[in-house]
Simulated scan of single mutants.
Amino acid sequence: MTNTHLNIEAVSKSFGPVTALNRVDLKIERGSFVCLLGPSGCGKTTLLRIIAGFEKPTEGRLLLDGADISEVPPHKRGFGMVFQSLALFPHMSVAENIAYGLKLRRTTAKEQRERVEELLNVVELPHIADRTVSALSGGQRQRVAIARALAIKPKLFLLDEPLSALDAKLRDNMQIELRRLQQKFGVTTVLVTHDQTEAMMLADELVVLDHGKVQQAATPTQVYRQPANSLVADFIGAANLVQAEIGQNRQLAIFGNSFKAAADYEPGTAVNVAVRAENISLRPAQANEGSTGRVVFARDLGAFKEWLVSVKDQEIRVRGSASDDSEFQVGDLVHLTADPARLAVFPVD
């Protein structure tokens, strides 16, 4: 039996001559946390607005539990949404903001009071229920907006980059809080973000979009370790794309290390090889050793170390652990070794 909650079927959206979405197919499972991720202009916000009902697809349809909702107006879809601007009512108290959707649905005063009290405790704001939102901190306003969206027990919980305006520490704390709330209520959630770290941390499924198309939809681990193409590999994480050619016996040489290509490519095929920064190791180059590079940038970030190494007119990013004793400096000649088990090979487009 399928557990698909929202089925997006061949959805396209055009704005005049511009195609924002091109036949997007996506199944969102009940209770899952899905992140729509991609560069600016990739179509992720347009897709979220179509799900919410603020935009109508040019083609295709949306099925919620098997029912076509493509023509259903936003206020009748029963979805909760948190906007980037939060869109709270500054003249209302915290409790009044949270209860707003319940009042529109004409729930009883008792039900409103009980639901507001429950959510105030969940987001840990019962002590400021009567305070106006204009007097709140950024993190408190975020929690009020989330509580308001959850108050109506939404069929879908939609978020449009709601944490982007927060400072780094508060944002990290709110990411944890958001994931905990989603798991507590078990609500199917779709989040738009351009932040890879945020998406990797929150999502059950990552949907990477570019040029209006889904490039890959999979778990964060799968997207990171087994990217579907060079575009996904380049966008997610610190990946190096190295051009190479399949040799005899399907051997592939990267940084002077030869290994058998995992994919079944013919000799002479030009390929891109995605090499994650943490899957490259460095050692001092020996005299007259081939396949060396020169360190052109070095930094210690506490949790890890990073170097940029110039190899044949390409700068390769390398990342080492904090426990790595290597102290390579700018100007040092080094030899690079890639982990063949962690490489992804794609044909050149």
Rank of each mutant, 00 (worst) to 15 (best):
L6T: 15
K13G: 04
A20T: 12
K27Y: 11
R30M: 09
S32T: 11
F33S: 14
G41P: 07
K44L: 03
I51Y: 02
P57G: 08
G60P: 13
L62R: 12
D65N: 10
P73D: 11
P74K: 14
K76P: 12
K76H: 15
G78I: 01
G80F: 00
M81A: 09
V82I: 14
F83P: 08
S85A: 08
L86E: 09
L86P: 05
L86G: 08
A95K: 03
A95S: 14
E96G: 08
L104N: 09
R105S: 10
R106P: 04
R106G: 06
T108V: 11
A109I: 03
E114V: 04
R115I: 06
R115C: 06
E118Q: 15
L119T: 02
L119F: 00
L119H: 01
V122W: 05
V123D: 14
E124Q: 14
L125H: 06
I128D: 12
T132D: 07
G139F: 05
G139K: 05
Q142Y: 13
I146F: 05
A147G: 02
A151Y: 09
P154H: 03
K155N: 13
K155H: 12
L159P: 02
D160P: 12
E161R: 13
K169I: 15
D172N: 15
N173G: 12
M174D: 15
M174Y: 07
Q175V: 04
L181E: 13
F185S: 04
V187A: 02
A199Q: 09
E205F: 00
V207D: 05
D210N: 15
H211D: 14
K213C: 13
K213E: 15
K213D: 08
T219M: 10
P220W: 05
T221N: 03
Q222A: 10
N229Q: 11
S230E: 11
A233N: 06
F235R: 04
I236H: 09
I236M: 13
G237L: 01
A238I: 02
A244D: 12
E245Q: 15
R250V: 04
L252F: 01
A253N: 13
I254D: 10
I254T: 10
N257E: 07
F259R: 00
F259M: 02
E266M: 09
P267M: 11
P267I: 11
P267C: 13
G268N: 08
T269Y: 02
V271C: 01
N272G: 03
R276S: 00
A277V: 00
S291A: 15
S291T: 10
G293S: 06
R294H: 06
R294N: 10
V295N: 07
V296N: 02
V296E: 03
D300K: 05
F304K: 02
E306K: 01
L308M: 06
V309F: 11
K312N: 11
E327A: 11
F328M: 06
F328D: 05
D332N: 10
L333W: 05
V334N: 04
H335L: 04
L336H: 01
L336W: 00
T337W: 01
R342S: 07
L343W: 00
L343N: 00
L343I: 01
V345H: 00
P347M: 14
P347I: 14
V348I: 14
V348P: 05
